[in-house]
């Protein structure tokens, strides 16, 4: 075991533990805060694996913007402190889906790479940039189109509601 293995195991454990706490917590706002820890831990995993750019973008976008928006919505609707209880059937179903997904992804990884360890050297920042804006430029641009459509729809939904209110 190298020090990198130990570091990766530690960050991975933190990520997984925070994720479990985020899912099992009854108070929604606490679940959101554990989600912050989990997503931050995931950024740490990327960093340990040498993918600096991916790690920082993860921190900037998911932690710094997406979860902030989630927490903001919780505070706005004042539902953050409330206790959330789901039915046992619901929980078992969710656990089943989660376990199935884990087995599926783990199986795919083992099938693809086997059990032996591999040297990981994260791609350089320039390389990622060239790949995104070279090989994968069309999917990338299509994604931005999708986000634009979502944005326009959100504005449409919000404004049509307003005019109906005013007319009533």
């Amino acid at each position: 075991m190298t020090s990198r293995d130990v570091l990766f195991a530690a960050v991975g454990l933190i990520t997984a533990a925070a994720a479990v706490l985020a899912v099992t917590n009854r108070r929604v706002l606490h679940a959101g805060l554990w989600l912050v820890v989990s997503l931050g831990g995931l950024a740490g995993c990327y960093l340990v694996l040498g993918a600096e750019l991916v790690a920082l973008v993860q921190l900037l976008v998911y932690v710094g913007a997406v979860v902030v928006l989630v927490l903001f919505a919780l505070m706005l609707t004042r539902s953050g402190g409330g206790e959330v209880d789901t039915s046992p059937a619901h929980r078992w179903l969710a656990a089943g889906v989660g376990a199935g997904m884990t087995v599926l992804l783990g199986g795919a990884l083992v099938a693809a790479y086997g059990w032996d360890t591999r040297e990981v050297a994260g791609p350089g920042n320039e390389h990622i940039g060239e790949e995104i804006f070279g090989t994968w430029v069309w999917p990338f641009e299509l994604l931005s189109l999708l986000l634009l459509a979502a944005l326009v729809t959100a504005v449409a939904v919000a404004t049509t509601g307003h005019s109906r209110d005013r007319a009533a």
């Binding site: 805060l33 920082l56 973008v57 921190l59 900037l60 710094g64 902030v68 927490l71 505070m75």
Partner: peptide
């Protein structure tokens, strides 16, 4: 001295907002 220090500074300062949100809540 990290290769993407600009991104690092922007990313970590964007985490600071959680302090304010947590205090507010």
């Amino acid at each position: 001295d990290v290769p993407a220090s600009l991104l690092l500074v922007l990313a970590v300062t964007s985490v600071g907002v959680f302090g304010t949100l947590m205090a507010g809540w």
